[in-house]
Design a protein around this nucleic acid. Structure first.
Lengths: 176, 176
DNA sequence: GTTTGCATGTAAACGGTTACATGATTGG
DNA sequence: CCAATCATGTAACCGTTTACATGCAAAC
């Protein structure tokens, strides 16, 4: 999903500035499956405006850049719908962690344990973040996606905890 | 993980050509967490050769481009180890599917069901692919990674099957 | 007879990140 | 007093994908 489409999607939920669009996808934990930086959001919004898929109204502010509040236009709504209906590109999961684990036999004593523990801690934080999202204002899609994420992190953590002991120094020595 | 490091990693397991490197990560189902195309592999191998991290021996072939078989050098091994030991960058999971599901309320009747069913079918294929990998020649890391992938796909499929009925046309009508 | 597999490579295009520039306000 | 928040934007850089070029052999 390119940044253009992400922006359109967010704007179907209500008007927003570029700054707010970024924040919306950081908080609550949608960040786990989609992402965009300022450097791509602002140019995307400009292009969408040129193409008539969104409209802008500028709100003057003293001593700050003017807020540019974007709204999706009917044409934008249509384009967004169309992009959801055409074949979705595949999910991609890129994991430096799994890649490193593939070579655990090459790593020095203890460092695999450290990598694993760091990763577990990280997954725990992500899971907490996902579970903390306000559960009331969310619609059907939001609930489905959040629970999907939670399910995946729970399964991941269970697997990691179950297999952690295999990589302890003692276990490795015993296997020699 | 950049293509350079991926190539180095594969070469720690044995010599290979660029062509073989690509294949190694397509088959067996390592593809679910790491990927690279020819357009990035060949230049990466050339650069690694320049830097002395790998060496090449050319095997002449009639009526075909010469096979270029790459081996990792001691310097390459060292560089690879070092890259595994420095802080790993975060996993990234990008999901057009979840993004689309977020907006299921905007989609026409039946199309959410279709998206879900396609995704389930796709996940089933991936799981089968992962389970079919030859279980004997694999080392500790390979086993860990493969079972990690299996665990995740199993959890995903269970979640999707459990929630599928919520998106059936009848269920949506009943909720009106 | 067409597709798949083997085998390497280049160049343009793409999408995106990172770093930079600017600068007042609010909260700790 | 310093960090974070609000707020927009540009430009250089990066790694990668896609399309192209070449071409035989074996399998279906």
């Amino acid at each position: 999903m390119d940044v253009r489409t992400i922006c359109l999607g967010i704007l179907t939920r209500g008007d927003a500035t570029g700054y707010e669009i970024k924040k919306l996808f950081e908080e609550d934990g949608y960040a786990f499956f989609v992402e965009a930086s300022f450097g791509s959001i602002y140019p995307a919004l400009n292009r969408l405006t040129e193409e008539g898929l969104v409209s802008v109204r500028e709100e003057a502010q003293t001593k700050r850049p003017d807020r540019k509040v974007y709204s999706i236009t009917p044409a934008g709504r249509q384009a967004f719908l169309a992009s959801l209906l055409e074949p979705l590109s595949e999910d991609r999961y890129r994991s430096p962690f799994l890649f490193a684990m593939l070579f655990c036999d090459l790593l020095p004593q203890g460092s695999v344990e450290r990598v694993l523990d760091d990763y577990i801690a990280h997954a725990e934080r992500k899971l907490t973040q996902l579970s903390e999202g306000n559960p009331e204002t969310n619609g059907k899609g939001e609930r489905f996606v959040r629970d999907f994420g939670r399910t995946m992190y729970v399964a991941m953590l269970q697997y990691l905890r179950e297999h952690r002991s295999e990589f302890k120094a003692e276990a490795l020595k015993a296997a020699e």
